[in-house]
Design a protein around this nucleic acid. Sequence first.
DNA 1: CCGTTTTTGTACCGATCGGTATTGATGAGG
DNA 2: CCTCATCAATACCGATCGGTACAAAAACGG
Lengths: 199, 199
Amino acid sequence: MGRSRGFDVDERLDRALAVFWRQGYEGTALSDLTEAMGVNRPSLYATYGNKQSLFRKAFERYLDGPAAHIRTAFDQPTALAVTETLLRGAVDVATTPEGPGGCLMVQGALVTGTQGEPVREELAALRRAAEAGLRERFERARAEGDLPASANPAALARYVWAISYGISVQAANGAPRHELRAMVDLALQAWPPASGSSP
Amino acid sequence: MGRSRGFDVDERLDRALAVFWRQGYEGTALSDLTEAMGVNRPSLYATYGNKQSLFRKAFERYLDGPAAHIRTAFDQPTALAVTETLLRGAVDVATTPEGPGGCLMVQGALVTGTQGEPVREELAALRRAAEAGLRERFERARAEGDLPASANPAALARYVWAISYGISVQAANGAPRHELRAMVDLALQAWPPASGSSP
DNA sequence: CCGTTTTTGTACCGATCGGTATTGATGAGG
DNA sequence: CCTCATCAATACCGATCGGTACAAAAACGG
């Protein structure tokens, strides 16, 4: 009972996501959010909690929407398919016309002052978890014979994520989609990079 | 004539660099700088100019010191040596014990609000210029027969920088030096990735 | 030793930061 | 139609932001 909300929670959350995506957590002011969302400050707090809480909700929505490839990649049948999904998905999300260029998991809070520190640490932990997940996936692939026994799953996972992060930074530089696609093709052509012996 | 300065300009600039490196441009407050540098605010302004100007000076010092490999890499005799210098140098600077993990060219201002926008654009332009420089270096290498005629210098340059950026992000995640070295070895083992035909 | 120039320290500037108290408008349930 | 819970809007909170005015202190040239 009582008065009903005058806006759609998820739709306005998408607008908040767009602002965080473009400006990062620390670079986004409350006034930026209220203006972009069309939601007054007290309504924003009542609906989404404080700035940190709002960011978390927007980030969840990011993982469920634009960056869904991150979660689905691990289910691909082969290590190559996993890698392809991850890298091609990274290019698509980092160069999507709706987005500002780049990936929120990287740009959201790569470095911060004291105020944004919890968010920075949260995102860093998420990236570490994603790297660990990929390493485990590659370990499984090696056990299944999908990757050669000489493969180094940990190094391979770091390698794939490094390229993914690099795509995000380059998209922030304004790199066009087709050039990043060509770069990914290049990286995939040498798959899997042998890793038994070191030079 | 007149009273002489009570501190060493370059030494205090190094301390400013450390703060910008750890917290980024926008995440760094004037009070953080004055505290870390041991220089009062008016002296800071008289010596280095405003916050933007101080960042620029600190960044110059970064390029001349910790990140000197970026400038020297291009002078290496072969494309492989250029790439090795770039990537191994990136690992070293991103995991240097004095630094906070990562590269200032990436972390300094990857995304910003309106206040940090000029610095963000400046760093982005610098990264674009560095990518263009590497592409030209690879074009020369191809002309000299150092790279196969089928090589794609532009994609190759993006690829190398992507890994370099990825190193920076992973160092910010806390990745240890030896693991990043193993990852670079992995990437270099497939050098040069063939790029004539696309799948 | 003195006068001048520069540096230093304190104290302050308006603007903006994230966050909230309060009041008036609104609409669902009875 | 009335009641009451909920939402919306203005206005405000202390703290901090980047940047500066001003006066005391210090060290150079003479």
